[in-house]
Simulated scan of single mutants.
Amino acid sequence: MKKIVKQDQDVIKQHNKLMILDIIKNKRPISRAEITKITRMSATSIGRFVSELCEEGVIRETELTSSGVGRKAIMLDIEPGALYTIGVDIEKKRISFGIMDFSETIVAHHRVEHKALAGTPAETAALICQEIRGMIARQGIPFEKVIGIGIGVPGVINYERGVVQLSSTLGWKDVAFAELIEKELGIKTVIDNDLKVKILSEYLYGSAKGSNKTALIGIGTGIGSALIINGEVFRGGSNSAGELGHTTLDPNGNLCECGKRGCLQTYIDENALILEARRVKEVTDVREVFAAARNGERWAKEIVSRTALYIGITINNIVCMYNPDTVILSGDLVENYREIVELVEEHSDQVIWEPFKGKFRVIPSELRGEAIVMGAGALAMQHFAPLSGSWSGE
């Protein structure tokens, strides 16, 4: 019985310690007295837990003092260099990396060109491991302080098992990718769908801050979406919620790479725009279509306008299903042609169901190209940092 009581006491102690660390991380800088008020714990207990956290190197006393009446209180803050995570964004033709410190700031960026379709998943994993080792060494970070790696991957992901079930963008099927990284580096790794990672970063750091229910639409080489409700990513039964690109617009329409006809992505992704443009002019990149539209070329303006209409229809479908307060437009198409957001809003007036008009906002991604790297670093932080409950600290 004594042993059980001791274990219960240890669990409670660890819970309280993590709660105090969480408070310091979210409300920093903060005084011991303020923590006492929030937790309603005794000043002695708070002092003891704070001392332990200082000794473990995850928090520190700052030179700042509170400006309240009476005795000045020394403020507490987290120690940014206490630990780090790595965020990775795997795209069709490149891989981006970022090192995130404990303050959730990206302290180093890196990008390499890489065509996943030209090699195997194992070769991609080997390249990622090589680049991560190099980044850590260049930053002079002790290897043991890197507690986790988060990776955003396009496709259907079993994030609990770390398996890429299907990624047509990368040409992968049933790849245990997290295991490939963990075996090589010995660092815990979590992977997730790239748009689910992106919406997490927008919720924590970008456009979706303060939103209760946000939908994100990603438009680029494919089409997808993600939903976050009260801070939780909506995953669906198999983590596949949001595969908008393969919703059907016209069963007799364009042939899609998935084998079906009339999928949404065959009307508004980059390849669709290029194929449409080639009926008029030989183009090799979607940016040429944007440039022609900016120059006032009628054929290009019509393509962009039609695309904006389909995006408006997509927004209407999402709003009718989920009733979000915010819809974020992201991806290369939006980032390279910001004017399309205004066109989408114009077309949305025609297609949004009347009860929802004026009840939500449509905004472009705030974090742009860094969103997935930041979200992947944050995902690893949530899974493996002290606040996840995995911190031994003793």
Rank of each mutant, 00 (worst) to 15 (best):
Q7K: 12
Q7G: 03
Q9D: 08
H15F: 14
K17G: 04
I20P: 11
L21I: 04
D22V: 06
I24P: 03
K25I: 08
N26D: 10
I30V: 15
R32K: 13
R32E: 15
R32H: 11
E34Q: 15
S45V: 04
S45N: 10
I46E: 03
S51C: 08
L53Q: 01
R60F: 09
T62H: 07
L64F: 14
L64N: 13
G68T: 10
V69C: 10
V69P: 12
A73H: 14
I74R: 15
L76P: 06
D77L: 04
L83A: 12
T85R: 02
D89S: 10
R94M: 09
I95L: 03
I99E: 02
T105R: 15
V107H: 12
H110P: 08
V112W: 03
K115A: 08
P121F: 12
P121Y: 13
T124C: 05
A126F: 05
L127K: 13
C129F: 00
Q130V: 11
I132H: 09
M135A: 11
G140K: 02
P142E: 14
K145M: 01
G148V: 10
I151R: 06
G152K: 02
V156E: 15
V163C: 08
L166Q: 14
T169K: 07
L170T: 12
A178D: 08
E179G: 05
L180T: 03
E182L: 11
G186I: 06
V190M: 03
D192P: 06
K196G: 05
V197I: 14
V197W: 07
K198N: 14
Y203D: 10
G206C: 06
S207L: 13
G210C: 02
T221E: 08
G222C: 08
I223S: 02
I223W: 00
A226P: 04
I228Y: 08
N239G: 06
N239A: 15
A241K: 04
E243Q: 13
E243M: 11
E243F: 09
G245A: 00
D250L: 10
P251S: 07
R261E: 03
T266P: 01
Y267V: 01
N271Q: 14
L273Y: 05
E276N: 12
A277L: 04
R279A: 05
K281M: 09
V286P: 12
A291R: 14
R294V: 09
G296Q: 07
G296E: 02
E297R: 12
A300H: 03
A300E: 02
K301Q: 14
I303Y: 02
T314N: 03
V319W: 09
C320N: 14
M321K: 11
P324N: 04
D325H: 04
I328R: 12
I328D: 13
L329S: 04
S330R: 04
D332T: 12
D332S: 15
D332F: 10
L333V: 15
E335L: 08
R338Q: 11
V341G: 00
V344R: 04
E346Y: 12
H347G: 02
S348R: 09
S348E: 09
D349A: 15
I352P: 01
E354P: 06
P355D: 03
F360A: 02
V362G: 00
P364E: 11
R368G: 06
E370K: 11
G375W: 08
Q382S: 07
P386R: 01
